[in-house]
Design a binder for these strands. Structure first.
Lengths: 202, 202
DNA sequence: TAAGAATTTAACCTTTTAGTTAATCTATTC
DNA sequence: GAATAGATTAACTAAAAGGTTAAATTCTTA
């Protein structure tokens, strides 16, 4: 693999990412990806064989980025509430940088859940560890007795939802204004933490 | 319009709803919708002219159902915390009955936000009223001083997210088991309320 | 620098898909 | 019960889209 081919591959992937995320797997057109990358359509097939493979390459990359850096949360020894403060800020920042990823991932997983098992196998099976951790804190009386799964899903939902529902939120609450919506997202980094804190702190 | 034609129209709409929701607008095939409805493909065009129109009919119907019965919240005179208890239970029940609607709506709005303005125009402009209501309760010291928009979006996100992220949640937290996932959703009706209550009650 | 390998393209091919047409079937009504 | 309007179908068309091929270009290296 020469420098040039590595470069071309990257250009294709970036173009494909853009088009797939904007239009979805089915809505995306190979020709449009080729145009976006400024190359011939046949070159897409030269590098990625077919649409399915190209899509998988893009999806996998996106999935890796979207997967919460749960390691931060799981591997840290600090109290849960401290760790999730870091996590929430960090996670919302990641999504602000890639605002369309969550919707893309969730939609493609919904319409094609078969591959999910494989994707998760070696990745997020340590969720049990996190659940145990929260249970310990509950037994220590630091956190209210709540199903840890409810807590985790609440945190993720509060972080992700504003991006998945972006158009409707931006329109209804901010009259379509970009800046105040961005400000709102930025505020969320502390708001979500306070929200969680108040609701689960014993 | 005869009885038969009304009936056929309904059958088509139901088939279209099923296929569009499962595959998305782009992924759906007119032939598949016709098969699902047990009719000839030409009949789809006879009743709905083209794919775009058929899709719009389905989408509009879905959007109406998905739009929170905000009237309950807005028109009631009871205290905010009481009203949202009713709202959350009711809303989650609606989504349990139509679990794929939220993902469908949000995805189609994301990839096609142009029509949103028209859709919302005569529908949810009374969000201001709700914001004002919350502000009053804050001034009365009943609720912690939080941006009302953050509160509203938190409530909606907590209700909707578990459905949008269904496959991943079901796999990660419930090993793919249907029953325990359903139980989890059912529990949420009270969990989400308590969560909100604890986090905003002054 | 010439041979050979890797990369890129223009022009095709094939299949799929939305949409059309003209004919058939089914009711209704005079 | 024939005429007519509405409902439904089989067969077809045109365009779009994914994918292929063989030739041209560029790069590498002996």
């Amino acid at each position: 693999m020469t420098d040039q081919s590595t470069n071309t591959e990257k250009i294709i992937l970036e173009a494909a990412r853009k088009v797939f995320i904007e239009k979805g797997k089915e809505g995306a057109r190979m020709q449009e990806i080729a145009d976006e990358a400024g190359i011939n359509k046949a070159l897409l097939h030269y590098y990625f064989r077919n649409k399915q493979r190209l899509f998988e390459a893009v999806f996998l990359e996106a999935f890796e980025k979207f997967l919460p850096q749960l390691k931060i949360v799981i591997e840290s020894d600090k109290p849960f509430l401290e760790v999730i403060q870091l996590f929430i800020e960090n996670y919302i920042n990641v999504i602000i940088e890639n605002p369309y990823l969550p919707g893309f991932i969730l939609h493609e997983l919904s319409s094609n859940p078969e591959n999910l098992a494989l994707l998760l196998q070696q990745r997020v099976n340590n969720m049990d560890i996190l659940v145990d951790k929260i249970n310990v804190e509950i037994q220590q009386g630091k956190i209210k007795p709540i199903d840890p799964r409810q807590i985790i899903i609440n945190i993720l939902g509060l972080c992700i939802f504003p991006f998945v529902a972006r158009p409707i939120i931006q329109k209804v609450f901010f009259s379509g204004d970009e800046l105040s919506y961005q400000q709102f997202l930025s505020d969320r980094k502390t708001e979500v933490y306070h929200f969680i804190y108040n609701s689960i702190k014993a």
